[in-house]
């Protein structure tokens, strides 16, 4: 079903700091409709002089959370929209949004698995929607998240990810740190590379569906690595994020 794509005015009902650079905004939508995990909304700002600018943000929340969407936004230095959202917006403010959009980078339990999610930086956001949806449906589809961050303080949803992995035998979360790892860390300490992909994806088997999201360079190198491993192109879906979130 295609949504009627009109702008609507959402209300900010909650703001939560996830990391020093990211915040999650809960928006109540007058015309909410269930989105597919992986989809995004466009956010539009209008200045008094009529100047407008737009950005797209992936929905972090699961469609089972009715009536609201959660957008997790990374604050980009000199980012026109992200700095407005971080520095100005307060609970009670209104934001003009349009969506949900996107039909390619989406996953739902009806698509099955095994499921391999690979994210870098704020690329984890749409993958989180997929995992929260999977959890809400109490799915047992074997799933792994490989999440690349610069430092431990950059990890978004740290506690929630630990909790999801702890209570679910069929879900595994693997972190890698590219700049600085936690003290005593015995896990991966480098950019995602073919050897890491092989180790992490191996146990899921060759029929896994893979979703890769993050900065362009990460997405390209991971997608190339997966194809070189013999994964069919049709099982790989990608979404590139820019330095401005999207």
């Amino acid at each position: 079903m295609q949504p009627v794509l009109e702008w609507q005015i959402a209300s900010v009902t909650a703001i939560r700091a996830e990391t020093p650079q990211t915040k999650s905004f809960t928006l109540a939508l007058p015309q909410w409709m269930a989105h597919q995990p992986g989809q995004h909304y466009d956010v539009r700002l209008t200045a008094p002089d009529g100047y407008q600018t737009e950005r797209s943000y992936s929905v972090a929340s699961e469609p089972e959370r009715v009536g609201v969407i959660e957008l997790t936004v990374e604050r980009i230095a000199d980012g026109e929209v992200s700095s407005y959202l971080h520095d100005v917006v307060i609970v009670g403010d209104k934001l003009e949004v349009r969506g949900p959009v996107g039909g390619y980078f989406v996953w739902g339990i009806e698509l099955g698995g095994p499921l391999m999610l690979i994210g870098g930086g704020s690329g984890v956001v749409p993958l989180m929607a997929m995992m929260r949806h999977r959890d809400a449906c109490k799915s047992t589809i074997p799933t792994r998240l490989l999440y690349s961050s610069r430092t431990p303080e950059d990890v978004i949803y740290q506690n929630e990810l630990n909790e999801l992995a702890r209570k679910d035998r069929m879900l595994e979360v693997i972190f890698t740190f590219t700049r600085q790892a936690p003290a005593g860390w015995s896990g991966y300490k480098r950019r995602i590379d073919p050897a890491m992909l092989s180790d992490v994806l191996g146990p899921l088997g060759g029929s896994a569906r893979v979703y890769v999201c993050g900065p362009t360079l990460l997405v390209e190198s991971v997608a190339d690595g997966l194809v070189e491993m013999g994964l069919p192109q049709a099982r790989i879906r990608t979404e590139r994020f820019g330095p401005t979130g999207k």
């Binding site: 797209s56 980078f105 590139r240």
Partner: peptide, 10 residues
Amino acid sequence: LMLDGNAIAG
């Protein structure tokens, strides 16, 4: 700054 077709889905 390069994105993909997802960015213009709307």
